[in-house]
């Protein structure tokens, strides 16, 4: 170490997978801790990446840390692969890593998603990375992050239970839409990110590993395989997913999956299956293409145990 050159390194526009080695090491350390304490929010530095904060930068950093050239990435937004931001993220991931791209859930090794868990059952060799806007399930009852952290430390979820109870009394049901607060491994309440209630049970005792990462809020957490994820409910009122069991997709003919509602001019609604490539595969199958059979979490509109 005698010259200035020893302070630096050969110039490159950026590292493999965009993040430099020290950023990746920090993420690796935090990802391990997240796995070790399921559902507990781990603070991390959260580097700026070349997309805007709030647009999936947390998920992006986790995915970039995992990527290798043989990875195959699927990116969805609201269930759709061709949604503009999903397309942008997929292109970026592939550009900086040489990883393969796919729309097919079964072909992917890493799935980065905003607001949905695919309908097809994920395998143990697949990792789901959920983008998280707000990692704090207690925010509606406590906006101050320091106080909320103390509440998690004390497992003090009384105020959260109280708001759920008030909803029961006032509206006859719990009014939480997406991002349903859930108890992980019997200890930490987490927000599963704004996935619909339909998707939360897919995280419970799953075969795959899920990371949830909030870049702007600088927190990441995980649900390892075979980990209990229990939506907060009262013992006499069971958890209720969206009533999409009987809806049929007007494009693919699929019934019993989470649907997008499309308002019609005549005042009615039509529906299309939200997991867009799942729908495409159904159409292709109906057109005679031989596709491998697909295992899904829901069958005939009911969650399979």
């Amino acid at each position: 170490m005698t010259s200035l050159a020893s302070l630096t390194k050969p110039w490159e526009a950026f590292s493999y997978g965009f993040l430099d080695a020290s950023a990746k090491r920090e993420l690796r350390r935090k990802m391990l801790k997240a796995v070790a304490v399921p559902g507990c929010q781990m603070p991390y530095a959260s580097r700026e990446v070349p997309i805007a904060r709030g647009w999936g930068t947390g998920g992006l950093q986790v995915t970039l840390t995992l990527l290798k050239p043989t990875s195959v990435v699927k990116v969805i937004d609201q269930g759709a692969d061709d949604s503009v931001n999903a397309a942008s993220i997929r292109k970026f991931l592939s550009r900086v890593s040489g990883a393969g791209k796919t729309w097919d859930t079964g072909e992917a090794t890493i799935l980065q998603s905003r607001h949905r868990v695919p309908e097809e059952v994920l395998r143990e060799d697949q990792i789901l990375v959920l983008q998280v806007p707000n990692p704090e399930p207690l925010r509606p009852v406590e906006p101050n992050m320091s106080v909320a952290r103390q509440m998690h430390a004390d497992a003090d979820y009384g105020r959260l239970w109280l708001t759920l109870y008030e909803q029961m009394v006032r509206s006859g049901r719990i009014m939480q839409g997406a991002a349903y607060p859930s108890l992980v491994n019997g200890r930490h309440v987490m927000t599963p990110s704004p996935i619909p209630r339909w998707d939360v049970p897919k995280l419970h005792m799953a075969r795959h590993l899920t990371f949830l990462s909030a870049g702007r809020e600088k927190r990441l957490y995980a649900v390892p395989p075979y980990t209990r994820v229990e939506p907060l409910v009262f013992s006499d009122v069971p958890y209720k997913v969206e009533e999409h069991h009987d809806l049929t997709c007007h494009r693919s003919g699929l019934t019993g999956y989470f649907m997008n509602e499309i308002p019609q001019n005549d005042g009615s609604s039509s529906f299309e299956v939200s997991d867009s490539h799942f729908g495409i595969k159904a159409i292709r199958r109906s057109e005679g293409e031989a596709l491998a059979p697909i295992d899904t979490w829901y069958k005939n509109g009911e969650l399979q145990p």
Binding site: D77, Q78, G79, S83, H115, R116, G177, A178, A179, P194, I195, P196, R197, W198, E242, F258, M259, N260, E261, S274
Partner: peptide
């Protein structure tokens, strides 16, 4: 788009 959360 936020149509999944809105649908929920």
């Amino acid at each position: 788009p936020h149509y999944v959360t809105f649908q929920s």
